[in-house]
Amino acid sequence: TQSIHIEKSDTAADTYGFSLSSVEEDGIRRLYVNSVKETGLASKKGLKAGDEILEINNRAADALNSSMLKDFLSQPSLGLLVRT
């Protein structure tokens, strides 16, 4: 696993530069990185398409609903625990 911390203040970007997809496997919801913008903040921090997001801001990914995800992604900083 890899811990990634991203700050939007690093650039004038209003997004982190990646998209997520939610997949249900064996009754457990998993979050995967769908795509990463080549010039985006997430790419600079090493996030890659296909990575599994285990935690966002110290909250287990399978416990997050879509409104919580939207809220986290609109925050000025983001902490991710990722399995590559």
Rank of each mutant, 00 (worst) to 15 (best):
A60R: 14
L69T: 06
L64E: 03
L81W: 02
G50T: 03
A12G: 14
G79Y: 10
R59L: 14
I4L: 06
A13L: 07
D26T: 07
T15A: 07
G27N: 12
R30C: 05
L47N: 00
V33A: 06
E38Q: 13
K45G: 01
F72C: 09
A13W: 03
G50F: 02
A42R: 01
N57M: 01
R30K: 14
S3K: 14
L41I: 10
K44I: 10
D10G: 11
L47F: 01
Q2P: 00
D71F: 06
R29T: 13
K70M: 08
R30G: 02
S9C: 00
S19W: 05
V36K: 02
Q2H: 15
A42K: 01
G27I: 02
S77A: 12
N58Q: 11
L47A: 03
D62L: 07
V23S: 10
D14F: 06
L47M: 07
A12C: 12
L78Q: 02
A60E: 14
L81M: 10
Y16S: 05
G46E: 00
Y32G: 02
K37F: 09
S67F: 13
M68V: 13
V23G: 04
G17R: 03
Q2G: 05
A42G: 05
T11H: 09
D14R: 06
N57V: 00
L31W: 15
S21Y: 11
D26V: 06
Y32N: 05
Y32F: 12
P76C: 06
I53G: 01
L81T: 13
L54T: 01
N57I: 03
T15P: 06
R29C: 05
D71C: 11
S35M: 06
A12R: 13
A13E: 15
P76V: 04
S3I: 12
T1N: 12
L64K: 01
A13H: 14
T1C: 08
N65G: 09
I53C: 02
T11N: 14
V82E: 10
I28M: 11
G40E: 01
L47K: 03
I28C: 13
D14W: 01
T39V: 07
G79A: 13
M68Q: 13
T11A: 13
Y16C: 01
K70F: 07
H5F: 15
K44M: 07
K48T: 07
H5L: 08
K8R: 08
T15W: 01
K48S: 08
M68R: 05
L54I: 10
S35Y: 12
S74A: 11
H5M: 06
S22W: 14
P76L: 03
S3A: 10
E25F: 05
G27P: 00
S3H: 15
D14T: 10
S67P: 08
T11R: 12
E38D: 13
F18E: 08
E52P: 00
E25Q: 12
L69P: 07
D26A: 09
R29G: 05
V36C: 05
R29M: 07
S9D: 02
E38M: 07
G27T: 03
R30Q: 04
D10P: 13
S19K: 06
V33D: 03
A42H: 00
F72E: 07
F72G: 04
A13R: 12
I28P: 04
S35Q: 10
S43Q: 12
G50R: 00
V23Q: 09
L80H: 02
I56M: 12
D10E: 10
L41V: 09
L54A: 01
V36E: 02
A13F: 06
L64G: 02
L41A: 12
L73R: 05
T15N: 12
I56K: 04
E24P: 06
K37P: 00
A49S: 11
E38I: 04
P76Q: 12
L47Q: 00
S35R: 11
T84W: 07
L78R: 01
E25G: 08
S77Q: 05
K8T: 01
R59G: 06
R30A: 03
L47T: 03
G27L: 01
A49I: 13
N65L: 01
I56Q: 00
R59Y: 15
D62G: 12
L64D: 00
K48I: 03
L81R: 13
K37N: 07
Y16P: 01
L31N: 02
A42F: 00
F18W: 03
L64P: 03
K45T: 08
Y16E: 04
D26K: 11
I53M: 00
S21D: 11
D71E: 14
S19A: 10
K37R: 11
Q2I: 15
Y32S: 03
T15S: 14
D62Q: 11
K37M: 12
L31Q: 00
E55H: 05
P76R: 10
S9R: 11
S19D: 14
S21T: 14
D14L: 05
D14S: 08
T1A: 08
T39C: 13
